[in-house]
C-alpha cells in the first residue's frame, strides 16, 4: 500500500490535531484540580498511586491509591473523554486512607491522584498507563 501526497497531508493534519488535543484535555484536568483544591498550591509528596505499566484492556484497569491521614483522594484520567474517575472521602473509621478499584481508560494516558492531606495541604502524583489494543477482535 502506498500513501498518496493527499493522504500524507491528511495524516500530517491528524498528527497536528493530536499534538493540540492534550492541551485541551489538560485544561479540563486543571479546572477539576482547581475545583478540588480551591486553587491552593499542590505538592508532590504524600500520595501514592499504583497502576499497571501496561493494561491488557482499558475496560478494567486495577488501581490503588493511598495518602496517610488524607481526608479525600480524587482520581482523574487525563486522556478520557471525561477525566473524572472517582473521589474517595475517608471517614473517622477508615483504618487507612487507601482504596483499590478498577477503572476504564480510553487509551494510553496519565492517571492522576490528588490528595487532601491531614494538614489541609494538597499533593499530586501520576502514572502513565499504556493501554494495548489487541490485534484479535475476539
Amino acid at each position: 500500500m502506498d500513501f498518496t501526497r493527499r493522504e500524507t497531508l491528511a495524516m500530517g493534519a491528524g498528527a497536528a490535531l493530536l499534538t493540540v488535543l492534550p492541551f485541551r484535555a489538560n485544561a479540563a484536568v486543571d479546572d477539576l484540580i482547581n475545583e478540588f483544591t480551591g486553587g491552593a498550591a499542590v505538592g508532590d509528596a504524600g500520595v501514592d498511586l499504583t497502576a499497571p505499566e501496561i493494561a491488557e484492556n482499558g475496560n478494567t484497569v486495577p488501581i490503588d491509591v493511598s495518602a496517610e491521614g488524607a481526608t479525600a483522594i480524587m482520581v482523574l484520567a487525563a486522556g478520557n473523554p471525561t477525566p473524572p474517575v472517582a473521589t474517595f472521602n475517608f471517614g473517622p473509621l477508615a483504618a487507612s486512607q487507601a482504596a483499590s478499584t478498577r477503572i476504564r481508560l480510553a487509551g494510553t494516558q496519565d492517571v492522576i491522584a490528588i490528595a487532601k492531606l491531614a494538614d489541609g495541604s494538597y499533593a499530586r502524583t501520576s502514572k502513565t498507563v499504556k493501554v494495548t489494543i489487541g490485534g484479535c477482535g475476539g
Binding site: 471525561t82 472517582a86 473521589t87 474517595f88 472521602n89 482504596a99
Partner: peptide, 17 residues
C-alpha cells in the same frame, strides 16, 4: 468511606479498603 463514582469506574464496581 464515601466514594463518588464517575462513568470511568468499570462494569461491576469493585472497592477494597
Amino acid at each position: 468511606i464515601d466514594v463518588t463514582l464517575e462513568p470511568a469506574i468499570s462494569t461491576n464496581p469493585y472497592f477494597e479498603f
